[in-house]
Design a protein around this nucleic acid. Sequence first.
DNA 1: TTCTGTTTTTAGGTTAAACTAAATAATGAA
DNA 2: TTCATTATTTAGTTTAACCTAAAAACAGAA
Lengths: 225, 225
Amino acid sequence: MELSPQIEDYLKGIYMLQTRDRQVSTTALAGRLGITAPSVTAMVHKLVELELLVHEPYRGVSLTPKGETLALRIVRAHRLWEAYLVESLGLPWDEAHIEAERLEHVLSDLLAERIDEALGFPTIDPHGHPIPSPTGHVQPVTGVALAELTVGDVGVVVQIRDETPELLRYLGEFGVYPGEVILVLDVAPFNGPMHLRVAGKTQVLGREVANHVVVQPEVAIEGGT
Amino acid sequence: MELSPQIEDYLKGIYMLQTRDRQVSTTALAGRLGITAPSVTAMVHKLVELELLVHEPYRGVSLTPKGETLALRIVRAHRLWEAYLVESLGLPWDEAHIEAERLEHVLSDLLAERIDEALGFPTIDPHGHPIPSPTGHVQPVTGVALAELTVGDVGVVVQIRDETPELLRYLGEFGVYPGEVILVLDVAPFNGPMHLRVAGKTQVLGREVANHVVVQPEVAIEGGT
DNA sequence: TTCTGTTTTTAGGTTAAACTAAATAATGAA
DNA sequence: TTCATTATTTAGTTTAACCTAAAAACAGAA
């Protein structure tokens, strides 16, 4: 099935929003896509006709299995491109994300396989998001928000939740990448900033931002009291 | 200026056809783009309005300097992608061409620069076509058709004129790539096939195909009589 | 339970890019 | 020079994807 880039964006958008809520409101979708709500309703009708969505009027939409398969194809394309641009050209991850936003609509199965192979069949992209397999299998990433940790806790960064280029660039400056180990030095009260040890340096990070960083908590090597 | 992929295809198509004739008929353009003639006329009017083309009714169109600059941007994108896919992923050149046909519409200046740099600022693509510089400068490729050579002549392949995937695949099997040295062993009369020595092997190539291979004739090293 | 404000959908319109059918202009042979 | 053929353009439709304005449905407070 050959889909327009627009339809691909709808499917991907719904897939992303579905990770939070089972039903996606047309307004939420409109917001994410930067399109007015009436336009979204019209497109939803069309996608229902194509059996890619189920629509409960006034309650929201959800992907059919067929729709999800197609959505995963786009997500896979996006993340493969991101990984490839970072790996092969050394693009900063925020720029890679922006480029992938357009390239994801132009990746044949053949080229996807070649890139996948060249990268050694990675399971996650540079931000720690899982790369769906060609068959649509997704390896879930587990962990807790960095903001949940308390003083003395140690965690390994596994994912950056939001892919806003500004956030990515900001975190990149701090050295916060998947795989990095973070030690919580101090947590200010009233949702204040966290003092962290990252990549050998001390950094101060706001709680807002820390909520977008997912870490795998680690048991401290040196046992305390 | 942000152009639609369609407009980009028109500009590139006109540019390609202009290398043969100064004026490009709307019918020739329609044929190349796989679009009906009336549709082309309509689009031509629009591009004239945008000052990208000059149109002499019933005589054809030609690019304005502004139009040519934009056309060269697409040609550059296409050839950079081709070179990159062949170099970095080892794609066969016919497949690289097909992929580049879609990727050319999705290459930012920034990414183009990165790719150009990673490739070491090449001046030609895998088929020997010049890659326009960011400023629109084109290094012309000189040479004669392989079909022009006669028995005993030696030439270095510099370009494959046509980029039809079938032709590229066919020539690839014979080892006919830019840079390869060809020795003409025999030429059959009445436009018959040529017997050639390429990459250490003897090959037979039809005159039709030999017309699409551009070579730089070389003076034989071992002087004759 | 009723009202009010928000969310969602319906109605109607626009633009880009294609199409077919018909008309007009150019060209080359008799 | 005239006429038939071919090339090109004009006229009118269609489809996809968006928009604004207005109507309808829903949800929470009085």
